[in-house]
Write a protein that binds this DNA or RNA. Structure first.
Lengths: 337, 337
DNA sequence: CTGAAAGCGCTTACAG
DNA sequence: CTGAAAGCGCTTACAG
């Protein structure tokens, strides 16, 4: 038997006033008699009254809840973003409905439907590695539910986003490798449909071109399933006649696998092969040698994404999609010269 | 301008039937005329009708939402549990409201209030390192909102829980150290108010006692703030006249710091000092040497906790608190002999 | 300053 | 098989 929660009606009956009055007292409406207000508040406290936010949401057509869709909470980048989102949401009185797509388009689409049915005030999302068509997102846009993307953004969708300059981050990484004298710089890329993967690849190519390094297709391998394909990708690179002397990886989880595979094969890092990742995953500073990487302010990205969403909620009429670019930094550790 | 979502009233008007009929058709009530039903369903689909779950929740006094309180989503153990919870929730039609306490009692208590106000059907929780008094939990119990604890459970609260046998896990770890010939086995413990910390400590002491090893208070150091105190704790142990030849750590994040500190001080692992952790954090297999540890089925623990909660939701009348014990395993890697 | 009434979008007992 | 009505717990325009 569940205890029936206290309602404003209970309070009203006990105090012999109307529910309107109780409601006004609780909400701190200006028209209320101070004494009535005190009486209501003290009774509410005494009975541990908890407003029914479900009822409030229905009445106000606002749930004070935002929905989040991430590919995988177990990826440390996303749990860190999530932490930033939660922190910011809490401080603004918002609740967070959490979903993950498990890198699967179907689940992602289903999650969006769930969030829509839940009448979240807005959505924060990073797309799955499978997502190239954006029908499910167009559906959200049609309902005019504000949505802000972070990190992995869909192509050609008019929505705000929080990203780092992926091309520039990659460019910094590869330029550095060139400065150490690396000649055959390979790239292990990510799923081709992800913009972040295309942009990091572009940064890699831009750096090579600028310094007149040859750009060879055989030096680029794509991991459509990210770290799950990383061992295989590394083996392909190490199996060539001339092995690379540096590898720039799409992200740290992939770079970790790359380092392990290189070591297994008996090559030395960084002497034989240098490695750079992307994201500054906690594992990267622990692995031997510690992984050089491009850091992203993951937690701040979460906070920023929520902030953009809240801004959009405030002035829904004159909404313009904004792109917020966050800073990256080249972190040099033992995996590079 | 937000688009007004389609309601059953819109469908009813278009089809010239009553909202009762539409409601029944959508919910697949048995009394409905098949043709009416088809008409309703096809129009609903055409207009992309999404039921308003806020209204449903208010009417049904059931939100199909469960609330989660974890200390820190960035700890990989918790993000893994969270993933299990989410997966199971989704497959049972439940949504997940996510909160974290940041290891802070105040925030934890506030989170519980928020979940109560949100009228979640049940709560899943792992307490903060600061939590020793359980007033905030008693408040939940009084409302009869089902709550299930996992991993970090409060003392003396009549509620279901999902845990591993921490004492036994610790016992296995320390017995193994003894079997390798270790003589001075130290323990870096966790916050004293956490039962898991007390139980792991007990397993440590039990193993030592059973094999007639001396149990010395100077061999035990507590990290009240977990990994934040770990470097300091290690220095204390290494600063003694006779340094330990093995250290059993409260968890992997702490053990990681311990390994780093030991290496910094110029000792060899495992030759001079062996190290064992607890939890099988992803970092543990990457660090050099790889960390031996006690594995916990974190994702399965999340699923199990949600399962216990759902069971409790089904038969609320004859509820008996259950304790589900999950298996641990000693994983031997390079940090032990 | 306070109350009665309407309504948010549903579900369901009741009557037909 | 279908509809009218009540009600879930709130908020607020309107009247007094």
């Amino acid at each position: 038997m569940r205890n029936r929660p206290i309602t404003i009606r209970d309070l009203a009956l006990k105090l012999d006033v109307s529910i309107s009055t109780v409601s006004r007292a609780l909400r701190g409406a200006p028209e209320i008699n101070p004494e009535t207000k005190t009486a209501v508040l003290s009774l509410a406290k005494e009975l541990n009254y908890q407003p029914n936010v479900v009822a409030q949401s229905l009445r106000n057509k606002k749930t004070n809840t935002i929905g989040v869709v991430v590919p995988e909470i177990e990826m440390s980048f996303f749990s860190s973003v999530m932490s930033g989102i939660q922190e910011m949401a809490r401080s603004h009185g918002y609740r967070v409905l959490f979903t993950q797509s498990n890198e699967c388009y179907q689940e992602e689409s289903h999650n969006l439907d769930t969030l829509l049915q839940s009448r979240v005030d807005g959505i924060l999302m990073s797309i799955s590695r499978e997502t190239s068509n954006t029908e499910h997102i167009q559906k959200i846009l049609r309902t005019k539910t504000p949505i802000v993307f972070f990190d992995r953004t869909p192509h050609g969708v008019p929505a705000s986003k929080v990203i780092v300059d992926d091309r520039d981050g990659a460019y910094k990484a590869v330029s550095y490798l060139i400065s150490t004298g690396a000649k055959r710089i390979a790239h292990i890329g990510g799923p081709r449909n992800l913009e972040i993967a295309r942009n990091r690849r572009k940064g890699y190519i831009d750096a090579l071109s600028e310094f007149n390094h040859p750009v060879g297709e055989h030096l680029i391998v794509h991991c459509e399933h990210l770290k799950e394909d990383a061992v295989e990708a590394t083996k392909i690179l190490l199996g060539q006649e001339e092995i690379p002397d540096a590898i720039f990886c799409i992200n740290d989880p992939v770079a970790i696998k790359v380092i392990q595979t290189i070591k297994d094969k008996g090559f030395r890092i960084p002497e034989d092969i240098q490695v750079i990742g992307f994201a500054n995953d906690p594992v990267s500073e622990v692995i031997e040698p510690p992984l050089s990487t491009i850091s992203q302010p993951s937690k701040a990205m979460g906070r920023a994404a929520l902030k953009l969403l809240l801004d959009q909620l405030t002035d829904e009429n004159d909404f313009q999609p904004k792109t917020q670019l966050m800073e990256t930094e080249l972190l040099l550790r033992g995996s590079t010269l």
